[in-house]
Amino acid sequence: MKSPRRTALIVLIGLLIVGILGGLFASQQTFKKRHQERIVATTYAVVQIADRLKLPLVGVPNTANKMPARYRNVTKVGSPMNPSAEKIASVKPTAVYSVTTLKDQFGKSFKQQHIKPYFLKLQSVSDLQQVVTKMGHQYDRQKEARSANHEINQAITTAKQRAKGRQRPRVLVLMGLPGAGYMIATNHAYVGNLVTLAGGQNVFPSKDQEYIQPSDEAIQKAHPQVILRLEHAMPEMVTAQFNSEFKSQSFWHQTPAVQSKRVYDLQEPDFDATANMHAAKALGEVSQWLYPGSR
């Protein structure tokens, strides 16, 4: 007859073995799940997020931006504005990601290929952090997600400290459009959000619109002290357009920003129309432009 102590020891050993086997099985399932993921990123902003989270990709967009080393030999699936449903389908994806601002670009061809993209909201730094957190949890990259968000939080804290106790500058944000002039970015646009976080006052706030039509008279009356010119697409063309506009239209010379030479050009990869993993650096630059001479 077995003693109670011996019986208890056997039960304990059995439980330990079951626990170890359960842990090994769970680890094996996680490893298997990681290697079964076939993710397609159709915009460069999503590529950056995937790279920061160390996610595997089987499809990336055609872009002039430098592709992270881990994705250089990955299948190109077309431009963010016009991705190819056929190429995406050919890599047999388990998930396809784009951004909400390009939702209209995914038409009938995607339904015909039985592809249902996920659209990430990246209109603000907060949106970006939420996406990073959610994808970090979904793909078991919580550590990487926390690290990325910590970096952004540090940049926000630094920007707030730089602006503390100082008068808020009046800021005008313009988004250049290749061959079609420019739009005014409100506080709801990504760069407008950077201005808010940096402690600036957007001279064209809105309740819900990201971009509004420009008005020479309204810009004059706004008296912007700082002008940020976003040149996220075809920067050479857009920069030339802006320079021509600012030279030919006399009202620009009457703005405090031009008179004090506080006009700044924003280009990729640090700046874009949607939030991306350069957010911490971009916020730091905007903060220094708004509050020069401070740490």
Rank of each mutant, 00 (worst) to 15 (best):
M67R: 02
M67W: 01
A69W: 03
A69F: 06
A69E: 12
R70C: 05
R72Q: 15
N73R: 10
T75A: 04
T75D: 03
V77D: 01
G78S: 04
G78P: 02
M81Q: 13
N82P: 00
P83V: 07
S84E: 06
A85E: 06
E86P: 00
K87G: 00
I88K: 03
A89H: 04
S90C: 08
K92G: 01
K92R: 14
A95M: 04
S98N: 04
T101P: 08
T101Y: 08
L102P: 00
L102D: 02
D104L: 08
G107L: 08
K108Y: 06
S109W: 02
K111D: 13
K111Y: 08
Q113M: 15
K116A: 15
K116T: 11
P117N: 08
F119M: 03
F119V: 03
K121G: 04
K121W: 00
S126R: 09
D127Q: 07
Q130T: 11
Q130N: 15
V131E: 05
V132Q: 04
K134C: 01
G136N: 04
G136Y: 07
H137T: 14
Q138Y: 08
D140V: 09
D140I: 06
D140Y: 13
R141A: 11
R141Q: 11
Q142L: 01
K143H: 10
E144Q: 15
E144C: 05
A145I: 01
R146T: 13
R146N: 09
S147N: 15
A148P: 03
I152Y: 12
I152P: 01
Q154R: 03
A155C: 11
T157K: 15
T157V: 10
T157R: 11
T158K: 15
A159Q: 05
Q161V: 08
A163T: 07
Q167Y: 02
P169S: 10
V171L: 10
V171R: 07
V173T: 14
L174R: 12
M175S: 14
G176T: 04
I184R: 09
T186P: 12
N187L: 00
N187V: 09
Y190G: 00
G192S: 10
G192C: 08
G192L: 13
